[in-house]
Amino acid sequence: MFWNLPLIAVVALTIIALATIVFKKNLIKVFLGIVILESAVNLFLISLGYREGGIAPIYTNAPSSAMVLPTPQALTLTSIVIGVATSALLLSFAIIIWKKYGSIDIEMIRRLKE
């Protein structure tokens, strides 16, 4: 039961994130939704890396030669870095739109349509 807890958290976070992205009108809140979605995916990747009774892949004082492959951690690190770049770019878009349009309400940001 408990080993499913991270995955339940992933599903809950995903639902919260998607609801935020779809229902919130403020651009910053939508971006927060995207960040939560990223966290959910990162948590998913990290929880995949857990092996019960596994040994962390740190060679100093390792008790045996069989260790857990640290790939999920590496993936998560990469994903976090990409997430930072994504957030930075999104927020800079928000600043420019706030300056030029005078609003960051999504319903106001629709000069391109049809």
Binding site: L18, V22, V30, K113, E114
Partner: peptide, 17 residues
């Protein structure tokens, strides 16, 4: 057809989901 292209980001995301 044309009114479907609302320009609203929420609609874009909803179509995708």
């Amino acid at each position: 057809l044309v009114p479907l292209h609302t320009g609203d980001l929420h609609d874009y995301v909803l179509w995708y989901l």
